[in-house]
């Protein structure tokens, strides 16, 4: 038996939908299509020449490599923080939890100058690292630090809910069966939180690829060595080379879409995985 659809009771669809579509069209779709439109206006050979320019290629390498290291650091740091915040109760827990959002709340340019001052050779942290031969400010390590700083919350916030949902019975069972705490973690807990872990890590990676403000202060910005792709775009703009800026921006946009696709597939898998268990 099929019921005829009841007439709409809730009003306001035309207005709400109209505003939403108009706004998204003007604010989001128009500029993104404008960028693509300009890129399609370029000659293919010109596009390839700009995008594969050695300086641009070097910047892709610096950006990708630094993001990978930053994410590797956050994988460990984020997991530790998420675990401690969910599993243990201690004085200052709520404060520590609130501080995890600091990188999201602090403007990126402010984070940039602050990290540079802290890691400079006479800075609070730099003065202890420099004698050990670790130079952070104005090196690639600086880029990694800035990327790690701005993307920490993604890993922590993705992991917290799934760690809270873990059933204590599983760990107790593992322990009763003679597993060491290390075995319990690697064989029982980690597989369960792995999809959320991967989601957080891919979000952090995507953010690191697009980051600009926090990085340019600390990076030193030496072409081929410590120059990120976002800065190459910015420099092309300052040189009024709009074609090159547009072309490289399109490459970054495309990589963002790929990352979005990857993240969404991971989340879908995560959702199915959670339902199966």
């Amino acid at each position: 038996m099929k019921f005829r659809r009841a007439p709409r009771v809730i009003p306001g669809l035309p207005l709400a939908m109209g505003v939403t579509l108009l706004y998204l069209g003007l604010i989001v779709l128009l500029p993104v299509s404008g960028l693509l439109f300009r890129t399609f206006g370029l000659e293919w050979s010109e596009f390839v020449a700009v995008v594969t320019h050695p300086r641009a290629v070097a910047s892709y390498k610096v950006t990708l490599e630094s993001a990978a290291y930053a994410v590797a650091f956050n994988a460990v740091f984020g997991l530790l923080l998420a675990w401690v915040l969910v599993r243990y109760d201690f004085p200052g827990r709520r404060l520590l939890d609130a501080v995890m959002d600091l990188p999201f709340a602090l403007p990126t340019a402010v984070a940039g100058v602050a990290l540079t001052a802290a890691f400079a050779s006479n800075g609070w942290l730099g003065q202890y690292l420099e004698p050990l031969g670790i130079k952070v400010a104005y090196t690639q390590l600086g880029i990694i630090v800035a990327m790690a700083f701005t993307s920490v919350p993604f890993v922590v916030r993705s992991l917290q809910p799934v760690i809270a949902d873990l059933e204590p019975e599983l760990e107790e069972a593992a322990e009763t069966l003679g597993a060491s705490p290390f075995q319990t973690f690697t064989k029982v807990i980690f597989p369960l939180i792995f999809p959320a872990f991967l989601t957080g890590v891919s979000l952090a990676f995507a953010r690191s690829l697009g980051e600009f403000g926090a990085i340019i202060f600390i990076a030193g910005n030496m072409p081929f060595l410590t120059e990120i792709t976002a800065l190459v775009i910015f420099i092309r703009l300052e040189e009024y080379d709009y074609a090159a800026a547009t072309a490289i921006a399109t490459v970054v946009l495309a990589s963002a879409f790929v990352m979005l696709l990857i993240t969404n597939s991971i989340q879908l898998w995560h959702y199915r995985y959670a339902r199966k268990n």
Binding site: L35, G210, F234, L237, Y242, A249
Partner: peptide, 27 residues
């Protein structure tokens, strides 16, 4: 997905995109 799209786009790319629409050499 469209609403959340700006989260995935690098701020520099967003700036360039607006320049290509409203800038002197934009659409």
């Amino acid at each position: 997905a469209l609403i959340e799209l700006p989260f995935s786009i690098s701020p520099i790319v967003a700036g360039v995109a607006y320049l290509m629409v409203y800038g002197s050499r934009g659409i």
